[in-house]
Simulated scan of single mutants.
Amino acid sequence: MNFKELETVVLNRDLPEHRLRQGDLGAVVHVYEPDGLEVEFVSASGKTEALVTLKSSDVRAVADGDLVAVRRLDRSA
């Protein structure tokens, strides 16, 4: 799938090295051709928690049936 900058995406897999879990929401901040994305993940208060380079297969578009939730970020790791 082709993503655009500033598009909200859903993480498809856990990234424990960044304390991210499948289902976390991120924003595409840069598109690298042919298949790379720079995605920013932020806390509910707006603080950047992770800026990660991913493949487009690592994320998916937000769907109408998705429900947004909040979880605590484990900062001890």
Rank of each mutant, 00 (worst) to 15 (best):
V39I: 13
G26I: 01
V9L: 02
K47Y: 07
H18V: 06
D24H: 01
L73P: 04
R19T: 12
H18F: 14
V42C: 06
K4I: 08
D74M: 11
D35N: 13
D74N: 15
D74E: 15
A69G: 05
V42A: 04
G36P: 07
Q22A: 15
L15H: 06
G23F: 01
R75V: 11
D24W: 00
V31M: 10
L11D: 00
L20W: 03
V70M: 11
L37S: 03
R13D: 09
R71Q: 13
K47G: 06
L37T: 03
L54C: 09
L25G: 00
F3D: 05
L15F: 09
P34K: 13
R72I: 10
R72V: 11
S56W: 08
A44I: 11
T53A: 06
Q22G: 13
R75Y: 12
R75K: 15
V39R: 01
V70R: 11
A44G: 06
V31W: 06
R21H: 15
D14Q: 07
E17C: 10
S57V: 07
R13N: 12
R60L: 06
V28R: 02
H30E: 15
L11S: 01
G23T: 02
L25N: 00
D66Q: 03
K55R: 10
G26A: 03
L67Y: 03
